[in-house]
Design a binder for these strands. Structure first.
Length: 182
DNA sequence: TACTGGATTCACT
DNA sequence: GTGAATCCAGTAA
């Protein structure tokens, strides 16, 4: 199994978000299949809409982890993209493959479907915190290559703008996968 | 320095 | 379906 090289992340978030589906993410003994992603570019919902010290990593890097804290209690993990622009892909849901015992312990639940079926759940199950913010893919938290998911098996949805009435962002998920969030 | 609200989740009704 | 938990980045002063 080979880690996705930095060059893999040179394209835009919108292009890469569906291609990340089916890839393997691993941290320590925990691993899983990415089943849901969300693309963030310069839309009004994105932290990159206005570049600040926190979000500058989305402009300045690609193939690095952008991990931020929200709602006073949750971490969310993104992989930065777009060599010449601004973007990141949020990992929204993962199907657990290995390290189930550790995940159950961290998540305080025995329900496998509830371990990683949400962006903050995924971070908690994998023990991801801001300590990993800014680190490149492969340094503690790694996405490995895997066969692409067929286009016909990928679902797409966009939320209609809460902020500006625009459509944003783009959510991609593997159809009929019970580990996708809702 | 003070205030506001969020790329969420969970318990409860 | 609704509301609480909880803290930090961003913004305004």
């Amino acid at each position: 199994m080979k880690a996705l090289p930095r060059s893999w992340f040179t394209r835009s978030a919108l292009k890469l978000a569906p291609k990340l589906l089916g890839k393997i993410v691993r941290r320590g003994s925990c691993a899983g299949i990415i089943v849901e992603t969300e693309a963030y570019g310069t839309d009004p919902a994105s932290h990159a809409f206005k570049i600040t010290p926190r979000s500058a990593i989305m402009r300045d890097t690609y193939g690095h982890w952008y991990i931020y804290f929200t709602y006073g209690m949750h971490w969310c993990a993104n992989i930065t993209t777009d060599k010449n622009g601004i973007g990141a892909v949020l990992i929204r849901a993962v199907e657990p493959l290995a390290g189930l015992g550790t995940m159950k312990h961290r998540r305080k639940t025995q329900n496998v479907r509830n371990l990683c079926s949400g962006p903050a759940k995924f971070c908690e199950a994998f023990g991801i915190t801001g300590a990993l913010n800014g680190s490149p893919n492969g340094n503690g938290l790694t996405i490995y290559d895997a066969p692409e998911i067929a286009k016909s098996d990928i679902g797409i949805s966009s939320r209609v703008g809460i902020k500006n009435g625009t459509n944003f962002p783009w959510r991609f998920y593997i159809k009929n996968n019970s580990f996708v969030s809702r």
